[in-house]
Amino acid sequence: MNNGTLVISLDFELLWGVFDKVNWRDKTAYFERTRKLIPELLQLFHKYDIHCTWATVGMLFNENWDEWNANIPECLPDYENKNLSAYKYGKSIQSKETEKLCFAPNLVKLITESKGQELGSHTYSHYYCLEPGQDSLAFKSDLEKSSELASNHGVELKSLVFPRNQYNSDYLEICGKAGIEAVRTNPNNWYWKNTQKDSLIQKIFRTGDAYFGLLDKSYSSSQIQNFTKNITGQKASRLLRPYSGRKILNSLKTKRIYREMEYAAKMGQYYHLWWHPHNFGNNPNENLRELESILIFYRKLKNKYAMQSLNMNELKTDHFEIKS
Rank of each mutant, 00 (worst) to 15 (best):
Q117N: 13
N71W: 05
T207W: 09
D318L: 08
N168Q: 11
Y87R: 06
H51N: 15
A150D: 00
R299G: 00
C102R: 13
R33N: 13
F280Q: 00
E156H: 08
L310E: 05
E40T: 09
S220G: 13
D78S: 14
L157F: 12
F280W: 00
S218V: 03
L44T: 07
T34P: 01
K217D: 14
F205G: 01
S218Q: 10
L301D: 04
G133F: 01
N62P: 09
N230D: 15
Q225W: 06
R299S: 14
K177D: 12
I174L: 15
S309M: 03
R256I: 02
Q134T: 12
A306Q: 15
R289Y: 09
T185L: 11
Q223D: 15
A182L: 10
F280T: 00
W54S: 02
W275S: 12
K145N: 07
Y128D: 05
E290D: 15
S141P: 08
Y48W: 05
N303T: 09
G58S: 06
G208N: 14
Y171W: 11
L42N: 09
L310Y: 15
A265K: 02
Y263L: 10
G233Q: 06
L149V: 07
R259A: 13
S221C: 13
F103E: 05
N283K: 12
C175S: 10
Y219H: 04
I72V: 15
P39C: 11
W192A: 07
A138C: 01
P284R: 00
S125F: 03
K266L: 04
D49V: 04
S222V: 07
Y270P: 04
D216H: 12
I231S: 08
E156M: 10
V57Q: 03
S151K: 14
Q43T: 14
T232H: 13
D318M: 08
E40I: 07
K27G: 00
K109T: 07
N81W: 07
G90M: 09
E118G: 06
N165C: 13
S199F: 14
S251L: 10
N226Q: 14
A150H: 02
Q308C: 05
A29Y: 07
W192Q: 06
S136A: 12
K158L: 14
F297Y: 15
I204N: 03
Q308M: 11
K177H: 11
I294W: 00
A182V: 14
Q43W: 04
E260M: 05
K304P: 00
F212Y: 13
S125N: 06
S121F: 04
Y305Q: 00
I111T: 03
N303W: 01
R164A: 12
N106M: 09
A210K: 08
L110C: 04
Y191M: 13
N282W: 03
S251Y: 11
E181N: 12
N303F: 02
T254A: 07
I50S: 05
G233F: 08
A264L: 02
L15P: 02
E99K: 04
A29V: 13
S146Y: 08
T228D: 11
N303C: 11
H276K: 03
K255I: 03
L252M: 15
I294Y: 00
I38Y: 00
G176M: 07
T232L: 14
C75D: 09
I248H: 10
C102S: 12
P163A: 02
A86D: 08
K203W: 08
L301R: 04
Y305M: 02
G17W: 03
I201H: 06
